[in-house]
Every structure is written in structure tokens, then in C-alpha cells.
Design a protein around this nucleic acid. Structure first.
Lengths: 218, 218
DNA sequence: TCAATTTGTTAGATTAACATAACTTTATAT
DNA sequence: ATATAAAGTTATGTTAATCTAACAAATTGA
């Protein structure tokens, strides 16, 4: 049985070494920063997690999760995302409120609880941020999050979430007629600077690449 | 902000000094026993809680909650009971499974969460064990509780809750075919030792007085 | 009433998770 | 190539929550 703190280290390591970041190892300082602790503290924990065979770590080297460690990390992420889905869908939390509470709920120890919760939510595959939810075996549809920038001309996609959640950006998004689950058709794209023409509910708009990079779609 | 441990002490003190137990103070050893710690450990915590003005405590004396401490304890109990209701009603947990998981969930810190959960459950007044759920202001309907022992022969009553909530007792209760809201008919009672014959869903069982004393009914 | 039992307290250790300060190793930049 | 910066480590200390062992106070029962 892992402590809350140990679980948080595994989760942080998983995120720091995912496909999205592109890296397969993380540094001690980097890890300490993401967990808001001092490097010395992280160093202590790395030794402990190595002892438990959850990470590969050598003095002055980079750290990565072992197969076992990764498995455990995925289970925590599974719980986190299921709770986020619960908060969003059943308790009327907004997308920006779910994370903080899910950070606490993910540490509740009860396999029955998480299985029943998953069933109650009707086996969702994606959380409110559009991240896919691993199943009980840790298998995860790697629908790696895609931004609007990656959608080919002529195709239509659905808005899942935004990367930058600032009020100013959200207002801009709404001005273009977009909301959660909006269908977006990519009409044209300039090779020069990535500026795109998109169509939402029959309404055409021109948006910059920076804008498109901030929209996650499926 | 209280630690999980501090919250558990307040909760234990509340239960040890409730109307049901009849007492208004608790001893150090008694408290230690219910929390599964050594008296020395409880003693340290009592000093700390006194410092925080959550309990009244004097060296070699008995302990009781202050108004502030009681208020906090009730909020924890409110959370516990709402989570139990959620597990029972929404996640298909059985009667005897809810407590253990609720012990963990009750420590989640988020007033929004508990308000939304209460709304989602449609403002329940009673948890799956029949204990009333305090509202956001800490107000609680104190229903006069009657035990099965007090029901006259020939009468039928409804099971509301149990006095001893241990898993082993709850399993025994279920074995007799009893569940929340079960109708119980008292068929016979021996004057000698109080042993009763009862009927639940047409099924007859013989139960001891001790057993009957543990069942609250209306 | 006073010796025995129960109850409560103190002192001193331990463990997990953090910190600071001083140090060592590795990376980098001209 | 090597001085400097960045990254990582070690030693030491703190706090919260636990323990054991020894001691002190309060209760009780003959």
C-alpha cells in the first residue's frame, strides 16, 4: 500500500515522462518543482521508491518508472479522471474546478469504489478535459489529445476542451461561436503562418495558429 | 484546517459523548481504545486540541468538546453520512460496506463538494443506517429511537438502524434477512431471557435479547 | 482508610515527509 | 579546455503521529 505522497510522486513521474512531453526520464529538480518540494526531499523519496522497485534511479542519473510503477501510476490517473468525470457530470462542477478536488479523491483506497463509480458513470472513455480514462486493466485508448491545428483541411472535429483557460481566451472562443462539443469544420489553412478559416454552425471565422493550438478536439 | 487525525479525534469524542451513550465526557484511555492508539498518543493529541480550543481538558480530568469542537465534529459526521448515502443509493454498496469507505471520504476538504453531493442526493435526512444527517448549519433532527426489544408481541415495525455498526454484527443482521426498511413482526417473546421469534418477509427467526437491543425501529 | 487497581502522564524513540546549508557531480558556453 | 552554472546529493534538523517504559494520580473495595 502506497502513501498519498508516494502516489503523487508516481503520478508526477508518469506525467513528466508521457508521450505528450516526449521524454522518457525525469530529473530530480524537475520532479521536485512539479511537486512543490525541495530537491533534497524528492531525492529522499526517489531512494525509497527505488527500494520499492517502482522506479529506475541511479545516483546523479535521471528517473523513470518501472513497469510496476507505471501500472500503479495509471491506476491513480484512472481514479483521478473518473472522479473528475463524476464531479463534472453529476455534481455540476465546472471544468476548472474538478482538478483540485479530484487530487484528493484519487487517493481513496477501495477498488470496489472505483469499479462501482465507473459503472455508475457508464464506463466513460474520456474525462472532462478530454483525456482518456484507463480501464481496470490499465489499458488506455491513446487518443493522444489533438489540437485544432492538427485537423486536416476539409475535416470536421468536435471541441473537447481548451489548453489556456483564462477568461480572456474563453471570451474570444465564445465570440467565434464555440462552446463545449461544438462541431468545427476546417475550411482552409495557410501554410505560411498556419492561419485557418473554420466554420462553426455555418458561421465562418479566421483564427490564428496560436488560437488553434489552444483548442483540444476529437 | 484540521489534519485527518485531529478530525478523527473530534469525531470519536462526539460519539463518546452523544445522547445515545448518555455521557458528556470521555476518558483518555477510552478515547485511545476507540481510536486504536495508545493512551500516551491520545494524551498528546488532547493537549494539542485543547490548545486549539476544540476541547475542554484538564490534566487527569475527563474531556469534552467545546462548542467550536462540536461544530467541527458535526460537519465531519455530516460528510460521513452523506457519503454513506451516496455509496448505498448510487453505487450499490451494501449496508455493511459503506462505513469503511466513508471513513476515508469524510476527510475530503471541499465545501462545494459536500453541498453539491447533498443536492445530488436530494437533501436526504437519514443515512443508510438510519442516523440523521446534519444540514449545512449543523442542525440535526433527533428522532426518538426505539429498539426491537420494546416492540410488543404481535406488532410489526420497520428497521431504521442498528446500534452496533460493526461489520460482523451487520452481516449477522443480514443473515436473518433484514435490511434497511425491512418490516419485522414480533411473533413471540420469552419472559425468561427475552428471546424473541420474529418474522421478516415471511421468514421466521429466533433472536436473542442482545440482538434485539441492537436494532432501532419505528 | 489505605493497598491495589485503574487511569492518566511524562520522557524518550521512531518514522514519514518535509526543510536548509553545504557539498559534489555533470553540463555548458565561450 | 576549463571555469562557471545547473543539477543532484548529503548531513542535519523539524514536525506530526505514533510507540514503549516508567511514573503519578485517582478510584475502589475490603
Amino acid at each position: 500500500m502506497l502513501s498519498h505522497t508516494e502516489e503523487n510522486y508516481l503520478k508526477a513521474l508518469f506525467h513528466l515522462t508521457s508521450e505528450i512531453t516526449g521524454k522518457s526520464e525525469a530529473g530530480t529538480n524537475e520532479l521536485a518543482t512539479t511537486l512543490n518540494v525541495k530537491p533534497a526531499t524528492a531525492n529522499d523519496m526517489l531512494k525509497k521508491l527505488k527500494e520499492k522497485k517502482l522506479i529506475s534511479y541511479e545516483k546523479y542519473g535521471k528517473t523513470s518508472l518501472t513497469a510496476t510503477g507505471k501500472k500503479q501510476a495509471i491506476q491513480i490517473i484512472r481514479k483521478h479522471r473518473l472522479w473528475e468525470t463524476f464531479l463534472y457530470e453529476k455534481l455540476e462542477f465546472t471544468w476548472d474546478e474538478v482538478h483540485e478536488v479530484a487530487e484528493q479523491l484519487e487517493h481513496i483506497q477501495s477498488s470496489k469504489l472505483i469499479e462501482k463509480l465507473e459503472k455508475f458513470l457508464n464506463y466513460p472513455e474520456v474525462d472532462p478535459h478530454g483525456d482518456s480514462i484507463p480501464n481496470a486493466n490499465g489499458e488506455m485508448k491513446t487518443r493522444a489529445r489533438k489540437t485544432l491545428t492538427q485537423v486536416p483541411v476539409g475535416k470536421t472535429c468536435k471541441l473537447v476542451t481548451v489548453k489556456d483557460g483564462s477568461a480572456s481566451f474563453l471570451q474570444y472562443v465564445m465570440k467565434v461561436g464555440l462552446g463545449l462539443s461544438s462541431k468545427i469544420k476546417v475550411v482552409t489553412r495557410q501554410d505560411f503562418d498556419g492561419t485557418m478559416e473554420i466554420e462553426v454552425d455555418g458561421k465562418k471565422s479566421s483564427v490564428s495558429q496560436k488560437f488553434a493550438d489552444n483548442l483540444y478536439v476529437v
